[in-house]
Write a protein that binds this DNA or RNA. Structure first.
Lengths: 195, 195
DNA sequence: CGTCTATTTGAATGTACTCAAAAGCGGTGG
DNA sequence: CCACCGCTTTTGAGTACATTCAAATAGACG
């Protein structure tokens, strides 16, 4: 039930049995159906979420009504609107389920308790934040320096499993092109593709 | 000498006198002249850097030879190639000084010692990484959803002081346009400017 | 003062977008 | 089992924002 999360944590810090059960006592299990929201723009984020099955996404909607996907969270990933979660102010992101999903949530106030009781978790979440930062930096560089085709190829390499199940539209909203253009790009004769 | 850094830290965690002096014992002071490199693409990042005066930048160079700026670090900011620093593998970023600068560095191995001796620092760097993550996420959303003019205006709002001293070319390399286009945009008749 | 770099300006070009419409696909209910 | 509905994907023609390349001008630094 919590094994996926516990083994994820075990990669970074070692917990005693007592620490582990204290941690588990703070967790809640939830299920989300496809398209069900976890969090909407304007809400204040009270939960940090770990995905055990299915897939969530976080995205914002720009002034022209276009969705831009910040993150996909398949199994074994955390997802949150960090800004709202940290600042406890209304967020700019929406989070919903792309497929039926099972998640574990932990409340912000409980995370603070956890930091007090088991300071090792500061390290765990520091490492997580650092890794997330690195991947966002990479993505930013991709957006600044690569063509749409190259960003698409990168995406396929980064998410080889996801790419097979995701609607094309979602991929477009992640790599930063319109669905129409992505379709044209994929059906372009090979001779015309940018390399 | 270390007061700027210590007061930055004091915003997040409280250090005893002993902890403070242990921390200080791990620091090195350095000076960088304008255009001097701290780190080059392909190096393995051994230092974390805090800027006390002047301004550094981190950037990558894409396959067409264009610079893309990841971060500006004026006084009171940290800067590093996180990927290289964390993974201890050759990095993709360059870091150099835009103006003559004074910096404080701390070695990676010493940071690990620091975490052992004063675990509170896990919290400090966790909070830093989280905040950095948030600002990178915002920037990513700006790049996906806003026009060049809007990104420029955002930049001016975010860095009101820097914008007055930075060469236009550097700003262009940050917001993701060519220097030529930025120049045209700024000299465009007001009636034609995008909102 | 001369050199090097940054900025400006212009014309031609390209990548990706817009709008519109058709075609495909999946689920649901009769 | 088929028909229908909604949503995704495809396709096309026209357009726009930003780039490329080239050259002139301005500014900064030694």
């Amino acid at each position: 039930m919590f094994t996926l999360l516990l083994s994820n944590i075990a990669k970074h810090i070692h917990l005693s049995k007592e620490e582990e059960s204290f941690f588990i006592s703070l967790l809640q299990l939830k299920k989300l159906k496809r398209k069900q929201f976890l969090f909407k723009e304007g809400d204040i984020h009270k939960y940090c979420t770990f995905v055990t099955s299915g897939c969530l996404r976080s995205y914002s909607i720009d002034k022209n009504g276009f969705e831009h996907i910040m993150q996909f969270a398949p199994a074994n990933w955390w997802i949150a609107d960090m800004y709202s979660f940290v600042a406890q102010k209304p967020g700019n992101l929406n989070i919903d389920a792309i497929f039926d999903s099972e998640i574990i949530t932990i409340q912000r106030t409980d995370i603070e308790k956890l930091y007090q009781a088991v300071p090792k978790f500061e390290r765990y979440f520091r490492v997580l934040a650092e890794n997330s930062l690195i991947s966002h930096q990479n993505r930013l560089m991709d957006n600044l320096g690569l063509s749409a085709k190259e960003r698409y190829d990168n995406f396929c390499r980064s998410y080889p499993t996801l790419i097979q199940t995701l609607p094309q539209k979602q991929v477009a909203a992640y790599i930063g092109v319109t669905p129409e253009f992505l379709s044209k790009m994929l059906n372009m004769p090979i001779t015309k593709q940018a390399g």
